[in-house]
Structure formats: structure tokens, C-alpha cells
Design a protein around this nucleic acid. Sequence first.
DNA 1: CAACGAGGCACAATATATTGTATAATAGGG
DNA 2: CCCTATTATACAATATATTGTGCCTCGTTG
Lengths: 150, 150
Amino acid sequence: MKCMYCGCEDSKVMDSRATIETNAIRRRRECLKCGKRWTTYETVENTPILVIKKNGSIQPFNKNKIISGLIKACEKRPVSLTQIEDIANDIEKELRDSLTQEIRSIKIGDMVMERLKQYDEVSYIRFASVYRQFKDVSSFIDFLSDFNEN
Amino acid sequence: MKCMYCGCEDSKVMDSRATIETNAIRRRRECLKCGKRWTTYETVENTPILVIKKNGSIQPFNKNKIISGLIKACEKRPVSLTQIEDIANDIEKELRDSLTQEIRSIKIGDMVMERLKQYDEVSYIRFASVYRQFKDVSSFIDFLSDFNEN
DNA sequence: CAACGAGGCACAATATATTGTATAATAGGG
DNA sequence: CCCTATTATACAATATATTGTGCCTCGTTG
């Protein structure tokens, strides 16, 4: 592996240990040229999560779409960015764990609502009212999906 | 490494190749028990970037703080989420490449302004005007830092 | 539709990583 | 401030990964 300091092409492993969950391997590497050391992690490939929108088109899942929607819904409300990130991370984790190939955008909309309700009723209601113009709540996530192309 | 399918503790490497940039190693693994295969990547550890706020306190850099600030500044403006992400990613990359230990929040504020100006003058001006109440532009990033604790 | 690039698969010879054991340093929690 | 968890470091014996070559498939592109 290339040295992250001098750019030298070769490095050797000084130590390698499994992490607690054994889901990753931590290695301590040393550059063969400059002798500097650094740490690497070997982790399972993050296969993109694909989302099927209501019109049938497919888009890669984008956590920031959820975050941006929640930021607007929670403006001036006691929901911190950290909590918003938690919600989005939690949803991503659940989607990855589900192992389902087909994830429908309607499902993601439901997951956002379900979690937001637990954090702040007002944001939840605002969330619903802001997007009242949509036929149903699930359309919201399609709106988020479209945000990319505006 | 643990099998991502059956949870078995052991797997072996079938194939390992350096990626184009030699910044990572891609391995093809096979579970010794269930025989299923998957791909892993060994990459350099993402060491947290630490930001020194104006009052001297230190916080980990959080890309989402930049994104959330830009989302508000670019509402109803022709700046897409993708472009906002590009700005934030570009800043993170520059910070990582700088190898500077000390990154002051004022610097990040400047970097955001500099890039936003290139994307959309109106958002840039709004950005400046919204935060006019602060003594100077650089205080904005401290505001973002505080968003976590609101 | 042909060309191309990327990824998956296989094999064999060689070089290198892994693992246990042990000590020290550091950061976070109580 | 101490206890604990995590990471860094070292060493030695053993097991395993790496690398070149070649072929196939799939998706993208001109």
C-alpha cells in the first residue's frame, strides 16, 4: 500500500488485529522508504443502497437528503444536528441490515416520520404540515430525492 | 475476518489487488464455513480533524455543520444538494491534505465563503447578510459549531 | 455492436502477514 | 485521581496473502 506521507509505493504491516466486532481488521503499517507509520482498516465494501422512487426510477440512497429535510423541519426546535445525524444513521443502518434488495422510497419516508415523532412532536407535526401539499407523507421522500436535481 | 453472511469468525482471501491510486487494497474474501464471498477495502484510517473555535475550545470537524449552514443559505436558490456536498467535501479534502495540526474555525468560514461565491452570488450575499449580526464573517463558523448544542 | 474498463475467478510460486504474549502510553468514565 | 479500555510497540513461529497471467462477464460508451 502507498505511503500516505511520502507517496512511496510500498509499505509493510507491522501489526494486524481484529477489531472487537471482528467486522474489520486494523493494521499498523510502516513505509519502506521514509519509515513513517500509520493505521489502516479493512472493512466490508459499502455497497450502495438503491432506492426505488414512486415513479419507478432508481437512485442511490443519500443520507444527506434525509439530513437536509430534517434540518428544515427542525429549525428553531430542540432537535440538535447530532440527533438529526443519529436519525439518518439509524435509518441507514436499518436499511443495510435489512438485506432487502428493493427499498421503496415510501418506506424511508415512514422511517423518518417514525423516528422524528420520538424526538420532537412539534417538528413531526411541522414536517407533516409543511409537506401537506403532497398527497401523502410518503411523497416527501420523493421530494427529497428530487432535491438533487433542482 | 468475520463472515458478513453467516457470522462465522474465519474467512480467507481469494484475491487481493491494489486500487488504481494504490491508496487502498481490495480483497475478495470467502467464508470458510458457508463459502459465500464478499469484497473488502483496506483504507487509511480517517483521523478526526480538530477545529479550534474562536473561544479556544476544540471540536471535531463535522462536515454536516457546513452542509446544514449551506442548505439554509441556498434555499430556493439554484445550488443543488450535490453541489453543497461538493463544497463540503472539497473543504474536508483540503483540510486533510493540509496536514496542519491547528485548524482555526475562521479558516473554515473563509473556505465556505470562497467556494459559495463561485457557485451562486445571491446565496453568497444572503449568507453574508443572514449572519450580518455577527461581528465578522468568521464568527459564522462558530455559530455552526454551536448548532450541536442547541 | 464493437471496444473498453472494471470486477470476478483460477492457479502457482514466493513473500509477507498473522497471532500469542507482554509492556507501555493515553484517553475517557466514575 | 484512579481504573479501564484502547492503541502503540516488539518478537518469534507459523499460516496465509500477494502477484502475474489469463480468461470471462457485465455495463458503459462511441
